[in-house]
Amino acid sequence: MLERLLAELDRGQTLSVKKLAMQLETTPAMVEAMLEHLERLGQVETVEFCQETCAECPLGSNCAMEKRQRLWQLRLNR
């Protein structure tokens, strides 16, 4: 299942957790669990959006990304 998830990610597309869950015939929670597992293995990484960028941003206090959802990205040099 983890291998099938990696194969889906290798296509280089943008996917939602839900879409991945449908493709793998499982639940979004399962996909998230596997993504977290892959993250621990260094295969994918969480995308950190606002760090020092937001500290410098004049709109940081009411930024659209403040309530952002979680995002992962496949590591290219894995």
């Binding site: 943008t14 996917l15 957790v17 959802q69 995002l71 992962w72």
Partner: peptide, 12 residues
């Protein structure tokens, strides 16, 4: 011309 990387979003 780099390789595109997959991107996964969690939909609220």
């Amino acid at each position: 011309r780099g390789k595109r990387s997959a991107f996964i979003m969690e939909m609220p």
